[in-house]
Design a protein around this nucleic acid. Structure first.
Lengths: 198, 198
DNA sequence: TAGAATAGAGAACAACCGGAGAACAAATCA
DNA sequence: TGATTTGTTCTCCGGTTGTTCTCTATTCTA
């Protein structure tokens, strides 16, 4: 979305205004500051800025005009290695990582680095980065991040049957594990994979 | 598309003008700056620049004259599937693809989609995207894009011996191929891999 | 030298932009 | 609660701005 000249002007004025004040200014205040006599006119401009992603839309609830924080290309949080034996939420040190849109799911995602070769037959190697969509349910056959006994996180293919959950590794030297449903928590579903050869 | 002398002049003036201003200038402003008295005259020149891809077309909207941003955040060119049997340079339809920095080499790179399962034991599957750094030499053991007999491009692990080049697939049902050095051209080295599970 | 290509002037036009203001509903205040 | 503020939606209007057109002058070329 490209801004017109007036929209740029107003965005600038808005930035200045918001630095000076420390509360979110109302339409009337901004109108007075810009010499506008009609809230309706301002509203059209603000609307354009909202669509351009520069101003927070106010869903009827909050009042005052707020700018969106310009978090420069945040990326997806990288949460460390999997098979490290702790729940995903527990990891706080989440530095962002740039991931192409094609590898993302629809919902919130995070990135883990794979440790071990338990999924080698699926082409998932030690050291690969996997993109995981955060969700607590999965379809049978999905590859999921599963937290077992609330302490060990692992990447496996899942099969959910009445009364039991089977986690299949993809490695001939390892065998499938069967759990009771309450022993396993799904923490996300595999959506993408990245590998660096350098 | 070739520009006339006047069109080049105007393009230069436009660049300067846009650096000075901080907003997109209107036709009238540029006319004044160039000493033109008619918008219509300028319009013809701008139109030529739009067709040359140097100025953004303004699709009926009135947002002033904007230059086309060159090269910023373009992404890596996606050149199509490998094993399609044609040299990489021959492909012209190169739409950009966003690739994380971690997967890039130092030099210019491109992206191919893998066709076939000849590298399955290396965890490279049919449909995966590979990031290739464009270079004509490789170290033994590298996975490279090799062009054979100037017509068939393929992704293989390379072993260069005196007088011969061996290309190893990573698939038990396929065997290594031996070529004379002049039969094989290296077109790039594997640097990264992307896979989507959606 | 005739004709084509290039440049500019100017008029006419339609679409867009920016603004005014009224009316309304929801949130907030007294 | 009732009154006021505040965001939203709507219509209307005038000026700006991009576009299109015709006409003319100049330069280049065959």
């Amino acid at each position: 979305m490209k801004l017109t000249r007036r929209q740029q002007e107003i965005y600038q004025a808005l930035r200045d205004c918001i630095e000076h004040y420390d509360h979110a200014p109302t339409y009337d205040e901004v109108c007075r500051l810009l010499g506008l006599k009609s809230r309706g006119s301002l509203h059209k401009h603000i609307q354009a800025l909202v669509e351009a992603g520069l101003v927070e839309p106010m869903e009827g609830l909050k009042r005052g005009i707020r700018l969106v924080e310009q978090g420069v290309e945040q990326g997806i949080p990288y949460l460390g290695r999997i098979a490290a034996g702790q729940p995903i939420e527990a990891i706080t040190n989440a530095e962002p990582m740039q991931v192409p849109d094609e590898l993302l799911g629809k919902g919130p995602c995070y990135v883990l680095q794979v440790s071990g070769d338990s999924m080698i037959d699926e082409g998932i190697h030690h050291g690969d980065y996997v993109v995981i969509e955060r969700q607590e349910h999965a379809q049978n056959g999905d590859i999921v991040v599963a937290l077992i006994h609330n302490e060990e996180a692992t990447l496996k293919r899942i099969e959910q049957r009445p009364g039991e959950i089977v986690l299949y590794p993809a490695n001939p030297s390892m065998s499938a594990m069967v759990y009771r449903p309450e022993e396993v928590r799904i923490q996300g579903v595999l959506r993408g994979l990245l590998r660096s050869y350098t």
